[in-house]
Nucleic acid binder design. Structure first.
Length: 139
DNA sequence: GCCAACGTTGGC
DNA sequence: GCCAACGTTGGC
């Protein structure tokens, strides 16, 4: 199983809204970036991801699971853009802030730190472990 | 709200 | 295929 990180501005689509969709999940649509799309195409059913609030929030707030693999993005007719569906699994006991991530030397290679503009990004098993620890949840 | 960094577009 | 111009993202 692989690990990922999904970024969303809480003003646009928040963790609370994601939780409200329940087990059915929600299409992670609207991505118009090739790298982010390629990451979604590489996802398998059951892959897990962190849910990160960008712009306002700046913290990892929960854990999601891929519940549908890559398919055409329903918000466009452009065949270039695919997306997956994700559903909320559980919140972190303590949100892990960007500040805390930057302060932890073990996380200095995270894509979140190195390329803050990429909205769907891979997370290594080691990074997953550390952030779960910081967030007070079992991986 | 600002602006730096980045990705995308389009003229050449 | 290059690169300037433009639009968007996201931390501050």
């Amino acid at each position: 199983m692989a690990y990922w990180l999904f970024k969303s501005e809480p003003d646009v689509w928040s963790w609370e809204q994601q939780v409200a969709r329940g087990a059915a999940g929600e299409e992670w649509n609207g991505v118009r970036n090739y790298m982010a799309r390629n990451n979604m195409r590489a996802m398998a059913l059951g892959d897990q991801g962190f849910y990160y609030h960008s712009r306002s929030g700046l913290e990892v707030v929960g854990i999601v699971e891929v519940c549908a693999t890559s398919h055409p993005d329903s918000t466009t007719d452009d065949p270039r853009w695919d997306c997956v569906d994700i559903r909320a699994l559980r919140p972190l006991a303590r949100p892990v802030t960007l500040e805390a991530i930057k302060a932890d030397g073990r996380l200095s290679e995270m894509v979140l730190v190195k390329n803050s503009r990429l909205s769907v990004q891979p997370v290594t098993p080691a990074e997953w472990q550390i952030i779960c620890e910081l967030g007070g949840t079992t991986p």
